[in-house]
Computed example of a mutant assay.
Amino acid sequence: MTAGEDRKAALERARRVVVKVGSAILTTKAGLDPRAVNRLADQLSGLHDRGLELVLVSSGAVAAGRGLMRSLNQESALELTDLPGRQAASAIGQSRLMHEYDEAFARYGKATAQVLLTRDDLRHRQRFLNARNTMRRLLDWRVIPIVNENDTVAVAELEFGDNDTLASLTIDLIQADLFINLTSADGVFDKNPDQHPEARCLTCIEDIGALDLARMCSGKTSVGSGGMYSKLRAARRAAQLGVPSLVVSGRTPFVLEKVFDGAEMGTWIPACGHRVSHRKFWMAYHADPVGEIRVDAGAAKALTKGGKSLLPAGIAGVEGRFAKGALVRISGADGLELGVGLSNYSAADLRKIMGRRTSEIEEVLGQAPYPEAVHRDNMLLDAAL
């Protein structure tokens, strides 16, 4: 199947779609742009009328709050470099953003729902499942959930970081069929077009896992927090779940309707051939790694080629301080990142048993609850961190 055929089939097959829109599309220097919100609602309502289930992950609250404060001549709101400032601006802007969406969608007889999430909500399994059940009920009721980070209560270490990351986790939360990322660019370019005028837009990225994202992408938008790096990382995570992505300009008139009518616009990123389980996806991406295990060449080969668990004998080094059950990075001796996994032992115990045979664990630690340092069922290789 060609890339064009894959794209056509996926768009025809899609029933549940996550659409992410960034601040650069929804705002101007003056703040939130109601016309942009109305144009987006026009398009989404049209797709909703076609029978699609839609979840919108929307930025814009911080910019909306900042715009209002500027209009009131509050100079302190001009630069929001610290977390409390961003949280305060979001608290001001979130209600205004939702009011604009409510009004825009109401013109088409559509109901919307505000869903504010923190990373902590999705990190805890029961709360994750509660959020999933709520989202499913909203979709059953033909409501359009509008998702944003709950900036007012999120702490720095529990921030998603950007709404592209939140969107990638929402794909897993609702088990979507398709991810559309509306951006200020026409798609993904082979180089940063701000630095390389000759850069060309890619129509398809066949193997997103093979891309050097850091080389291709640099810089962030002036009003957002992501940039193309975070968009491609989100697409890579979606691909691991078996969900294709489309990165396309949100400034093109009626772009969503054109795409679903067959126009080949933007950059298509197909799903990976091998899907990861929802459990492994949740394990790998709902917490940040707190340490690192370096493995020797033999262990790296056993992990990546043989699908084996990581044994203490293959560990060459341990970085950081972490407890049993913590999420840790797994890297080769050359520093190349291999993936992430849940450690069966604390960092202190791993340092005692690294390089030793499994039969020696009890002799060193006094007990041997696990033969593996990280079991393959608790490991995701090639994680998009």
Rank of each mutant, 00 (worst) to 15 (best):
Leu350Arg: 05
Ala302Tyr: 07
Ala235Leu: 09
Gln367Trp: 00
Met283Ser: 04
Leu97Ile: 04
Ala299Gly: 03
Glu159Val: 08
Asn192Ala: 03
Arg119Glu: 02
Lys352Gln: 13
Arg35Lys: 13
Ser249Met: 05
Lys308Gly: 00
Ala348Asn: 03
Ala271Pro: 10
Ala176Phe: 00
Met228Val: 12
Val340Gly: 08
Phe260His: 10
Leu365Lys: 03
Leu310Cys: 09
Leu97Ala: 04
Ser222Thr: 14
Thr28Asp: 13
Ala347Thr: 02
Leu182Thr: 04
Pro270Cys: 10
Leu381Asp: 10
Ala77Val: 01
Ala199Thr: 02
Gly314Cys: 02
Leu310Tyr: 03
Arg200Glu: 13
Ser59Asn: 09
Cys217Thr: 15
Gln175Cys: 11
Ala271Thr: 10
Tyr101Pro: 01
Leu158Thr: 15
Val19Leu: 15
Arg119Ala: 00
Ser245Ala: 14
Gly226Leu: 02
Asp334Gln: 04
Ala41Ser: 13
Gly341Pro: 09
Thr252Ala: 08
Lys301His: 12
Val290Cys: 13
Tyr229Gly: 08
Ala368Trp: 04
Glu319Ala: 13
Ala113Cys: 12
Val290Lys: 10
Asp82Thr: 15
Gln74Tyr: 06
Glu206His: 13
Ser76Gln: 11
Leu52Lys: 11
Ser59Trp: 12
Gly320Met: 08
Ala238Cys: 15
Val243Pro: 14
Tyr101Leu: 09
Met379Asn: 11
Ala14Ser: 15
Lys301Cys: 05
Glu75Arg: 15
Phe281Ile: 07
Arg357Lys: 13
Gly219Leu: 07
Glu149Gly: 01
Glu53Thr: 06
Ala111Ile: 13
Val223Asn: 03
Glu12Gly: 07
Phe179Thr: 05
